[in-house]
Design a protein around this nucleic acid. Structure first.
Length: 486
RNA sequence: GCUGCUAUAGUGUAGUCCGGCCAAUCAUGCGGGCCUUUCACGCCCGCGACUGGGGUUCGAAUCCCCAUAGCAGCACCA
């Protein structure tokens, strides 16, 4: 019944159909554990998740940690936390560093098939050859030679930079990016946090191996992977494997936020940001801390869809989604920013009962006991305000003797306040207020709030006339709340 | 430079494949009104777009060409 009041009858936008999906799909979300997930990851994660739910099937979380230079040991845990927060329907998890033997084995097979070779050329030199569409000397080595060199890679006879496995493609391919791209490299340092290894597959190889081995049928990823998709096709063809269905969506930016993990890390190290959940960052944990609900993120990302146009994601749209979710849930309280304490003359002692939620009387009220002094938002008391109404209490007349305003009781009539066009403002009993800091991306607003707010730790409330906020901390200093949105 | 992808209102999005029903959808935003003891929610009204130029056609947002702009790739990153 109460739910119905808030149920909006919107047409849910449905994602476009995927081909060959009638009998279910196997999809994956494959982050690199270099930091926590951000909005950009959420797009891939949520889109894939939505399709798995739409068609039924398996949803694999694959941790792509084959570059020890880009692995943050803490990220394994952070990624899982973020996925749990988003509420994705992951059915299984694999970690690529556990699977190196698999990749080595497949590489051996590919070498036997003549689909790959071990290249010992200098990197710069190879680059030049590639640009001029000429084969490097290693390309035509017999299989036996490649087999032998591959063994030397594995037994660490070769050191970092001395040899690399390349996939045979088409040296005359018009796109230089396609020509004999690398599949394995040697790295002596840094050590991998999870396995002892020095030969690492490059993304295009391990991705194909796993997509095939895990039975992935559909891949939805950013269009920065279009070239990789084309490269990967060569590997599929060498093995004679079936290629999954691909979809590439466009680049996404979000107004005023860095989404690059490395830049965020830099900012944190330099002390510009307080941590991964600094509310100025686009990480999921930052959004969570601000009071954005995971469903809002999901809905916003789903609304964007899988278009291949580059887009600039707008906070407005995210906030609107979040408000739909949070408005029916959030209890209402008074927060008085920049308070001034005033004494009201001629007023009877009263107790105000304000509703915790205007749409749900069953939730009850909070009580505010008025004695004679109240805290008011300084910004609402200007020289030309003659009257205001203290919400759920009474009217207040303001008269000015020069520069010193005085406040007096002006009756209980709501109708009078209306006809006087008095603003209905929030207030707090002076004897009963809790210090409260509201943190916004632009800075801090200090003020005071109702004592009951301390019971809302971790929840999103609405400070009437101010906006939604998530209660982040409650301690001796009072309440710290993060501003969510209006 | 080479290769490729994209281009609908401030933002996001539908329509584009299979030209006409599109003087272009929906959401968000903005403006106005109503409701209301919040500048929240809800309701109503309004604003606002097919990148430009050619071509094909009786007819083009939709097909073709050119231009422009944006983006991506050309790594022993993912």
């Amino acid at each position: 019944m109460y739910e119905a009041l808030f149920t909006k009858h919107e047409h849910k936008k449905v994602l476009p159909e995927l081909e060959c999906a009638e009998h279910g799909v196997v999809m994956r979300f494959a982050p690199n554990p270099s930091g926590p997930l951000h909005i950009g990851h959420a797009r891939a994660a949520v889109l894939n998740d939505a399709y798995v739910k739409q068609y039924g099937g398996r949803y694999i979380l694959r941790i792509e940690d084959t570059d020890p230079k880009r692995v943050d040991p803490e990220a394994y845990e952070m990624v899982k936390e973020d996925i749990a927060w988003l509420g994705l329907g992951i059915t299984e998890t694999v970690t690529q560093s556990d699977r190196l033997a698999l990749y080595y084995d497949l590489c051996g097979q590919l070498i036997e098939k003549g689909g790959a070779y071990v290249c010992t050329c200098d990197n710069e030199h190879f680059k030049e050859l590639k640009q001029s569409k000429t084969a490097c000397p290693c390309r035509d080595q017999p299989v036996e030679k490649n087999r032998e060199l591959w063994k030397k890679m594995l037994d660490h006879t070769f050191k970092e930079g001395e040899a690399t496995v390349r996939i045979k493609t088409d040296l005359h391919h018009p796109d230089p990016a396609m020509r004999d791209f690398p599949a394995f490299r040697i790295l002596d340092s840094p050590p991998h946090p999870k396995v002892k290894a020095h030969v690492y597959p490059l993304m295009n190889f391990s991705v194909v191996a796993d997509d095939h081995l895990l039975g992935v049928t559909h891949v939805i990823r950013g269009k920065d992977h279009i070239a990789n998709t084309r490269r990967q096709r060569y590997i599929y063809d060498h093995f004679g494997w079936k290629v999954p269905v691909y979809r590439h969506y466009g680049r996404m930016g979000i107004e005023g936020v860095v989404l690059s993990t490395s830049k965020m890390r830099l900012g944190i190290n330099e002390g510009i940001y307080t941590g991964w959940d600094d509310i100025r960052l686009g990480t999921l944990r930052a959004l969570a801390r601000r009071g954005i609900s995971p469903d809002a993120v999901k809905n916003a990302v789903l609304a964007i869809g899988i278009g291949d146009t580059d887009i600039s994601f707008s906070w407005d749209n995210l906030f609107a989604e979040n408000k739909k979710i949070v408005d029916p849930l959030a209890n209402r309280y008074f927060f008085v920013p920049d308070p001034i304490i005033v004494t009201i003359t001629g007023a009877p002692h009263r107790t105000a009962h304000a509703m915790l939620h205007p749409g749900d009387a069953a939730r009850g009220t909070r009580t505010l006991v008025f004695k004679e002094s109240v805290a008011l938002p300084n910004g609402d008391i200007t020289h030309d305000t003659a009257m205001v109404r203290l919400k759920d209490l009474f009217n207040l007349k303001i008269s000015c003797d020069g520069n010193t305003p005085s406040f007096s009781y002006a009756g209980d009539s709501l109708a009078e306040a209306r006809s006087a066009k008095a603003h209905i403002i929030q207030w707090l009993p002076a004897q009963d207020l809790v210090r409260c800091t509201l943190l916004t991306p632009e800075g801090e607003i200090t003020g005071a709030c109702e004592p009951l707010v301390t019971k809302e730790l971790g929840k999103v409330v609405q400070f009437e006339r101010v906006g939604f906020a998530r209660i982040d901390a409650v301690d001796m200093d009072g309440v710290r709340a993060y501003f969510t949105h209006k």
